[in-house]
Nucleic acid binder design. Structure first.
Lengths: 171, 171
DNA sequence: ATCCAAAAGCAATGATCTTTGCTCTAAGGA
DNA sequence: TCCTTAGAGCAAAGATCATTGCTTTTGGAT
């Protein structure tokens, strides 16, 4: 039931459907539109639920190569490869559009925060000089998402360049 | 005519109206809905037109204090103050939602690119060491927009911190 | 096994949107 | 001046969406 709904939304968003409404989703999911109208206040609310579920299902393991620079580079490349996939980019945009009021944290960025913390912790245990988690979010995660959100090109070398920049700050 | 339409959209977006449709816009603008249906393929297209017009109408002069660090800090604070205004944030989101296909550049980021280039040019003429324009976009502009887009809190000190970080890269 | 309550389906209604053919107006060219 | 034409208004029709009261199903508790 819930799975069918989420799947339907996923397919619609994924294929870039322009008209995503409760009736449309309901038909594809094989449920009655009323169910959706009663369970979510509006389409955006449902969209956000699905987007969060889709974007936070991790399974992305945090790199652990023994070098922070390598870890960050691998990680940045994973993120870049992930969010530039068209259906992921669409999810991101849908989520952004749906988020109308200020919230203090969001599940998507929380996951990134956690991953960054893990890498820096390991690095400092090895005695490496590390940037702060906030710096990693500001200077690696943010630029990657920024480019995707605004549909700007993101070349293959970009992630590596960002990592080099952020490490240059700590020296 | 066109002005009335743009104004109507601006008011609706600005006050966070949830249902922004051609008929609603048309009534407020005092024009016939048919006109809108014939001129734009859909509401998002019109929204994007207006958003671009609103977000690129500069009038923001680029700081010129004689010090790159001060210029960048002032500039970052201007941007932050600008895009965190609720109606501006809404514009940004509307624009993001509307942008479905990849474009190689967008008017909004172009303006920032131009401003950054102006500041670094002046700084290097003074003989200062400067970060690249791309670095400024990645490490100052992107984090600011990222926070606003995801409705994350943006504290007052954030812009200054970003500038300090990016300057630390060049040393 | 029966009962109860929450959730889903159904169907009818009204609101809103979208499309379309036609008419009317206004600005520019012969 | 008259003609042309692009753009705007008008109105009707059909499509889609949104709401609501009522019925049916389902899953768990007694």
């Amino acid at each position: 039931m819930l799975t069918a709904i989420y799947t339907a939304v996923g397919e619609l968003v994924g294929q870039g459907a322009d008209k995503i409404s409760f009736p449309v989703i309901a038909e594809r999911a094989g449920v009655n539109p009323t169910t959706l109208y009663r369970r979510w206040p509006d389409v955006n609310a449902l969209l956000e639920d699905v987007a969060i579920a889709a974007l936070t299902r991790d399974g992305e393991s945090v790199p652990d190569t023994g070098s922070l620079e390598q870890d960050l580079t691998d990680w940045a490349n994973i993120i870049a490869g992930d969010i530039t996939r068209p259906e992921r980019a669409r999810y991101l945009r849908a989520m952004v559009a749906a988020r109308v009021d200020l919230v203090t944290n969001c599940a998507v960025t929380d996951a990134r925060h956690e991953q960054a913390a893990q890498m820096t912790r390991r690095a400092s245990e090895r005695g490496e000089q590390t940037p702060t988690v906030q710096q990693i979010l500001d200077h690696i995660v943010a630029p990657l998402y920024y480019n995707v959100i605004f549909a700007l090109p993101l070349d293959d070398d970009h992630p590596r360049r960002l990592v080099r920049d952020v490490l240059a700050m700590t020296r």
